[in-house]
């Protein structure tokens, strides 16, 4: 059981939340120009990361707001929680798959670096975030 810290409500049980899949999957700018292969990749193809993974969550039983979470898929450690629309707080861009031996030290270094970056991104990006994705969910 995960104890997830909702940005609005504080720590709650995982059962109060719904998982929303991978975060930061942008809608294609010109969907009509995509071929079937590209459209299928947008719809169905997701990363299967071992290590830090950015994902969307909905606090469905509580405040009913979406937020993003950076979670380690191996240890289940929650490294950062940040608003919808904010950039991913760890600088390590989702690196293409490589050997497990090389990703393990990566995930530990981002784990220690994440909190300070997460705090700044939360502070600076609350204003634009509130006018984008979560706004649509509340109206």
């Amino acid at each position: 059981m995960l104890l997830i810290s909702c940005p609005n409500c504080g720590s709650r049980d995982e059962t109060e939340f719904h998982y929303g899949g991978q975060a930061h999957v942008a809608y294609p700018e010109n969907p009509n120009e995509l071929n079937d292969r590209e459209w299928a990749e947008f719809l169905f193809y997701r990363d299967n990361t071992k290590g830090a993974f950015a994902e969307r969550w909905l606090h469905s039983t509580g405040c009913r707001q979406w937020f993003n979470m950076l979670r380690d898929t191996v240890t289940y450690e929650i490294q950062a929680i940040y608003p919808m629309g904010a950039p991913r707080p760890d600088k390590a861009a989702p690196a293409p798959e490589s050997g497990t031996a090389s990703t393990a030290p990566d995930s530990t270094t981002t784990g220690t670096a994440a909190p300070s970056i997460a705090a700044t991104s939360l502070a600076t990006s609350t204003a634009p975030a509130s006018t984008t994705a979560p706004e649509g969910a509340t109206k």
Binding site: N8, C9, G10, G62, C63, R64, Q65, T138
Partner: peptide, 20 residues
């Protein structure tokens, strides 16, 4: 904030979300 209840007299307002 989450959990707060405001109101006057016998009318109470419960917080359900940031804008709800």
């Amino acid at each position: 904030t989450c959990g707060a209840v405001s109101g006057s007299g016998d009318t109470s307002v419960l917080w359900l979300g940031p804008e709800e």
